[in-house]
Design a protein around this nucleic acid. Structure first.
Lengths: 237, 237
DNA sequence: ATGGATAAAAATCTCGAGAAAACATTGACG
DNA sequence: CGTCAATGTTTTCTCGAGATTTTTATCCAT
């Protein structure tokens, strides 16, 4: 059929239920690392964590290995696992690479996307807008839902890009940037008018104005970099 | 210090000795998959492979997980592991994405590379040329050494690119394309004058002619795609 | 003969204990 | 007083067996 995200997929978010304990532990761990519960550079001792996540040693090991795939955890030879360190340089790199890939993908999406793609974009934007409303409550669940829907929105935007590899790399980079964004959101919760930026992207995309859409998207992504740049250096430990 | 590959690194190739059994099994498996010993789509049964690679079940499992990182193996929920399938579409995607990343990286390398980088490039090209001579013997070892030095050459070319992520993604894509290149080399061993192409890239790079260098590099990469396109379809099973 | 359901078989996933390696502390020697 | 070496502790890595799930084969009913 087509390779685009269907509207129902958007509605269902990314609710692949974890079928294995290792994957469940993997998701929990990933969330905890992105949330900052495990600090960058922290050692991840299997003996200590296997109780916390209620799985066996080998299982937790597998979960950690999966996190190495996402580059959220680094494995050092015979010296165990560690939460991937963060730095401003790294985030600059992530951001610029993301801009490179995401603009190319968006161009192709705008060029090739069909009605189904347009509907997906509109739907994802709607879901995101709703989540923005609930964000007023200030609950953790609301913020988490917003994060997820924001991710889906960016994913759907480029879902008509025919390159699976570009989309794959974009996913990885998005996960990475999520760690940094949490840091900036913690300090200056809602300074930017993110909604307007997203709206502008959607408008330009549906108008098939690739140049305008990529321009806004680039600024949109770079703005987060600026926000992180203004953070106190000690947060990037 | 600097982040470039040192000349000695080039000489030493990529000889990180595997310090763990899992990593050793991972490398063997990776080589076997790229070599085509395990065919695309094949099921990788842990029970059967753990004897073949002389490791425990859990260890082999870890090795397989590492291969998922390189996208050479796909893991399906509770249904075990499988060699990643191949297709012409996939290789087109890999190639185009590789061109995108590698040209950007080469541009930056040419712009930012210092004397050390130039020396690395010359050294890697020399190593590759020597391997080309030995290629006449037709031994497996010679071809394998050429493959490795070709990889190093492309890696060193973009080693002055400051983006670790671009280089990381390029590594993954190179590994992928290696699978397909083996297929094409099997049929038409040495039809192209690869040496001249590499020489032209080196010349343009050292002359700091980014436009020319990226142009040649792009053609160079695309040529392999054309070679694979001409393969009989049944090889892409 | 075809389709569905049950049961046997195979493979995967999970767990805990033993072996190997790395780390930290302490003591001795120059 | 500083450096080096040896020892003990901690942590990681590895292995084989048991529990779940998937797959295959068989059998009965339509």
């Amino acid at each position: 059929m087509n390779d685009f995200a269907s509207v129902s997929d958007v509605a269902a978010s990314h609710a692949d239920s974890p079928k294995t304990l290792a994957e469940a532990a993997y998701r929990q761990l990933r969330r905890d690392i992105i949330e900052g519960i495990h600090h960058p550079g922290d050692k991840l001792r299997v003996e200590h964590l296997k109780d916390q996540y209620s799985v066996g040693a080998g299982t937790l090991r597998e979960a950690l290995q999966l996190l190495v795939t996402d580059a959220l955890v680094v494995a050092q030879g015979q010296r165990g696992f560690r939460v991937a360190p963060i730095s401003l340089d790294d985030f600059e790199d992530i951001t610029r690479t993301r801009v490179l890939l995401e603009t190319v993908a968006l161009q192709q999406s705008i060029e090739l996307g069909d009605d189904n793609w347009e509907a997906s974009v509109v739907a994802a934007f709607h879901m995101l807008s709703r989540a923005e409303d609930k964000l007023e409550d200030g609950t953790d669940a609301a913020r988490e839902e917003w994060e997820e829907r924001n991710r889906v929105f960016h994913e759907v935007l480029i879902s008509a890009c025919p390159s699976r590899w570009v989309r794959h790399f974009q996913n990885i980079l998005y996960l990475q940037s999520e760690r940094y964004r949490r840091l900036s959101l913690f300090r200056q919760p809602i300074s930017r008018d993110v909604h307007a930026e997203h709206q502008a992207i959607v408008d330009a995309a549906l108008a098939r104005n690739a140049q305008e859409a990529t321009r806004i998207l680039t600024e949109h992504i770079l703005r987060t970099l600026e926000a992180v740049r203004k953070l106190p250096a000690n947060l990037l430990s």
